[in-house]
């Protein structure tokens, strides 16, 4: 869910709101200019805002919502989205991943970013990667994403559309049972939430 400018306004200070107004104006300019914007080494103004959101907004959660809104407003082209992700801080990468549902990218352009995020070991990035955009993952990649969440301690509730997609998925059920068996054999606890997902896979099967 995109946090709107109006919603953000209520949780930011006066100073941060003034900053956000001009940041969104910069993002609007970028969207209007499209490919005619600054090129080469000149950094577009909205990208400077995107980078500075944390210190300008104060509150980390609001800053992330601001970054997503800036991406949504500036509508960067797929190559720029990929660059903002690849050369982003942890916060910036999560914002790009969270913004994917609102950006004009084809699955062929968006999926590699999600796949990269799922390869990481940063649980915050993994949690972002299993958001709504993960619906475009194929069955194999999606099952491994769910398993990785359980493996790394990301609550399965972070997986968007889990109940629908896991329903009756016998292969996911097998993977979860094998993982649980491995943990039990090692004398280690089975992660919270595994039983819940396993129950989903057994339903409607």
């Amino acid at each position: 869910m995109l946090t709107t400018h109006e919603e953000l306004r209520t949780c930011l200070s006066t100073k941060a709101n003034a900053w956000l107004d001009s940041a969104l104006a910069d993002a609007d300019d970028a969207a209007r200019q499209g490919p005619n914007g600054p090129s080469g080494r000149d950094i577009p103004r909205w990208e400077l805002r995107f980078a500075a959101a944390g210190r300008e907004c104060g509150d980390p959660q609001a800053a992330q919502a601001v970054r997503v809104l800036l991406l949504h407003t500036a509508r960067p082209n797929p190559a720029d989205v990929a660059r903002l992700y690849a050369r982003g801080t942890g916060d910036e990468r999560r914002a790009v991943v969270a913004a994917l549902p609102y950006l004009p990218l084809t699955p062929a352009e968006g999926v590699p970013l999600i796949e990269d995020a799922l390869r990481s070991n940063d649980v915050r990035l993994i949690a972002a990667a299993v958001g709504p955009y993960a619906a475009v993952l194929d069955a194999h990649a999606w099952r491994h994403a769910v398993l990785k969440c359980l493996f790394t301690g990301v609550p399965p509730a972070a997986v968007a559309g889990l109940a629908d997609r896991a329903l009756g998925d016998a292969e996911l059920g097998r993977m979860l049972r094998d993982f649980a068996a491995e943990r039990t054999a090692a004398g280690r606890p089975v992660p919270d939430g595994l039983t819940h997902v396993l129950a989903l896979t057994a339903k409607g099967a």
Binding site: G54, R55, T152, G153, V154, P155, A158
Partner: peptide, 24 residues
């Protein structure tokens, strides 16, 4: 720098979970 943020807190839901140690 105006950029020091001295609260290293992580999202509680993740922090309480079995977070990553030694590669997951």
């Amino acid at each position: 720098s105006g950029r020091l943020a001295l609260d290293p807190a992580m999202p509680e839901a993740l922090h309480e979970g079995n977070s990553i140690l030694r590669g997951g």
